[in-house]
Every structure is written in structure tokens, then in C-alpha cells.
């Protein structure tokens, strides 16, 4: 039950682009494997995502210079420009500096993960991916990315409930 009236997000904006409206999320997947692209397209399109695809970092960089997406999923090991290089270049561009970028990779080493983090990746997902977990991650990062201007300020908790204890 909502005890305190909150500002109606829809009235604060002409947009109906609220989280509950579940707008179509545009995803760019970057992977040099045709099989992996086909699998990702099938998994994401069937879950309601609008899927765009590039074959390596260089193609993605060129495509993203002219196109907008809500979130990028990139492999690491790719010819021409790898995932690290793609993330670093996007982070220096005004257009995509804040774009959520998830790394989807077979790499399991902590060193590679830290490198992706330092390059500016938003998250790290290890293959073989679970489509439902991937979907949850996509919804979460695009929710934060798309909606902050429409969100009412969060109530400040003066006391942290035990269930929210940091662990």
C-alpha cells in the first residue's frame, strides 16, 4: 500500500515511456560468430526485444555513429576491433558515453573482467548464457538508463531494514 502520495510520473512528462509501459528495448549484439548471432537474435526477439546485430567491434562502431540503441551486448574476442576496444572507444564518444554495455563472453578470468570494468563496461555475463537472466539484466540496465528523468525521488530510508543489509 502506498501511504505517501507520489508525483505521477506520467504527469511530469508528455511521455508514456514509463517502466510499466515496457517500451520496446533496442539491443545491439556484437559477435563474430554467426551461430551466436542467430541464437541471440532468436532468444531476444522472442522475448520482445528489437535486435540489431554487428559482426565485430569495428562494424559496431561505424553503425553506432549513425544509429541509436538502448543497450549493447558485446563479445570480447573479435577480429579488427575487440570488445575492450569497442567499449573504450564508445566511452570517449559523446553519443554513447553513458550507454549500457554488457559483455557476453566465454572468458572466465578475473583479469579480463576487471579490464572490461575499467574500460567502462556496465556488466559481465559468462556464456553459455541463460536467456531469462540475460533478459533480466537487459531490463535492469535499460530501466536505469531510460527512466531517471521520469522517476520520482526515492524515499530516503533512515533505518535500513534487516533484509537490505549489505552482504
Amino acid at each position: 500500500m502506498q501511504l505517501h502520495p507520489m508525483p505521477d510520473p506520467a504527469s511530469a512528462s508528455q511521455s508514456s515511456d514509463t517502466p510499466s509501459a515496457a517500451p520496446t528495448v533496442r539491443v545491439l549484439t556484437v559477435d563474430d560468430s554467426a551461430s551466436m548471432r542467430a541464437l541471440l537474435r532468436s532468444a531476444l526477439a522472442s522475448r520482445g526485444f528489437n535486435v540489431e546485430q554487428c559482426e565485430d567491434g569495428q562494424e559496431a562502431l561505424e553503425w553506432l555513429a549513425r544509429n541509436e540503441v538502448d543497450v549493447i551486448i558485446t563479445d570480447i574476442n573479435m577480429p579488427r576491433l575487440d570488445g575492450f576496444g569497442l567499449i573504450e572507444k564508445l566511452r570517449t564518444s559523446a553519443m554513447h558515453a553513458d550507454r549500457p554495455i554488457l559483455v557476453l563472453t566465454t572468458e572466465s578470468s578475473d583479469e579480463k573482467k576487471q579490464r572490461a570494468r575499467q574500460a567502462g563496461a556496465t556488466g559481465w555475463i559468462v556464456k553459455p548464457f541463460d536467456a531469462d537472466k540475460l533478459t533480466t539484466a537487459l531490463r535492469r540496465v535499460t530501466h536505469y538508463h531510460r527512466t531517471p528523468v521520469f522517476q520520482p525521488p526515492r524515499p530516503i530510508l533512515t533505518e535500513r531494514p534487516p533484509s537490505c543489509a549489505m552482504n
Binding site: 563496461a121 556496465t122 559481465w124 555475463i125 559468462v126 556464456k127 536467456a131 540475460l134 533480466t136 535492469r140
Partner: peptide
Amino acid sequence: SALGNVELF
């Protein structure tokens, strides 16, 4: 539990 684990930074 190890399948497709997601870690957000």
C-alpha cells in the same frame, strides 16, 4: 547456478 551468471558493475 553457474549458467549465464550476470554481474553488474
